[in-house]
Design a protein around this nucleic acid. Structure first.
Lengths: 207, 207
DNA sequence: TGAGAATACGAGCGATCACTCGCATTCACT
DNA sequence: AGTGAATGCGAGTGATCGCTCGTATTCTCA
């Protein structure tokens, strides 16, 4: 069993100068991933693009993977916060309104930085950080399950875990696929139609 | 615009000896992908595992990508044939029975060679063969759309393209995620439950 | 202001990998 | 048996990449 390389910073940046270096490196990594692709994201290239030497890079990141992991974490945290906020906003709404809102938010979330999202989605497996997404998914299941539990009176009898899995997976797949692979479905009124269809899918399933 | 390396064989194998070599190489590639992962699938390793020299490998495959592409194509053709057969079988069935059967087939299809399927699904982006999957998807949309068209009397008024997109994407995501990431959902009676839930999702959406 | 800590530098090491090329072996056909 | 084509071989080439290490610069604080 090969030990996964640590992704914690090798050294914590204390001076402002070095904190700036760290940010610059993460930002450069994200930009290269988006504009040149995963294969071009070599440590030398990242350092060059960041205007930092490779040596300095390795002062703060123990290995290349740690850099990409930092980009992933930053993006994931952004998305997860959107999901948390949305489910909090929606907690008191009746099912149809709640689901419609959640579908809309899911589309918006995929649009935060779609190019980065796409690169990360496509290249995540080779980073060995897939379990992070699993954690993210589990939290989403749990949050949505909690909503369902609070609205049991609007539901048919159903295994809540399974229902949450079915709903979250479907919404995620529909919005993800639409945004990343079928942008034509998202031209304003077409977007509204998609939202309505996804809402219908989930609401009629649950009731 | 970088020219994509050709993936056609550099030379067509005519003698039986060489056809066997080609098969052995493809098979070895698949086995290494499954058992050792994408990163270990170097041309030297593939040749070694196949008991063939690197030189011979390059007689028949112009580049490494062509080898992986051959594995992908073989797997895709298998799956696509299952989908075609299923939709033909189901053409005359009423909606609920048809959808239930299709969901079941989708699960079976993901189970043909789940480990290979997973590696390919995860590593496909880096092979630059993503459009192949797009072609596969488009055919699936079209086939399902044709079913819907033939059963319009069982449907509400709806944009058939959109409905096909919603149904196919949902079924694919549910079965894919269940098989690859939540195998616990697939223990016989749990599998039946999943099939029923997915069927309900799609049927109630369409009617 | 001086000393030590923190930060930054970048040439270069060692390893890996895709792929080539000159030569050896085996086949098809006469 | 003989010949040319087809097939097979594998050491070697050049390029890339992740990462180190000895050194130079800048910061902190007494």
């Amino acid at each position: 069993m090969p030990r996964r390389p640590l992704t914690n910073p090798r050294k914590y940046a204390t001076q402002e100068r070095s904190r700036a270096t760290v940010d610059t490196l993460i930002e450069a990594t994200a930009r290269i991933l988006v504009r040149e692709g995963f294969d071009k994201a070599s440590t030398n290239r990242i350092a060059e693009k960041a205007g930092v030497s490779v040596g300095s890079l390795y002062q703060y990141f123990p290995c290349k993977e740690a850099l990409v992991a930092a980009v992933i974490d930053r993006h994931q945290q952004q998305l997860m916060q959107i999901v948390r906020d949305a489910l909090a906003d929606v907690a008191a709404l009746p099912m149809e309104q709640a689901v419609r809102r959640l579908v809309t938010v899911a589309i918006e979330a995929h649009r935060v930085d779609p190019k980065l999202h796409r690169v990360l989605a496509e290249q995540l497996p080779r980073t060995g950080r897939l379990e992070n997404v699993e954690v993210f998914n589990r939290e989403t299941y749990a949050l949505f399950r909690a909503y369902l539990e609070a609205h049991r009176d609007e539901l048919r009898a159903v295994d809540l875990d399974l229902a949450a899995f079915v709903c979250v997976t479907s919404i995620e797949a529909l919005t993800h696929t639409a945004v990343l692979h079928h942008p034509e479905v998202l031209s304003d009124e077409a977007k509204d139609t998609l939202v309505e269809e996804a809402t219908r899918l989930v609401v009629r399933y649950l009731s």
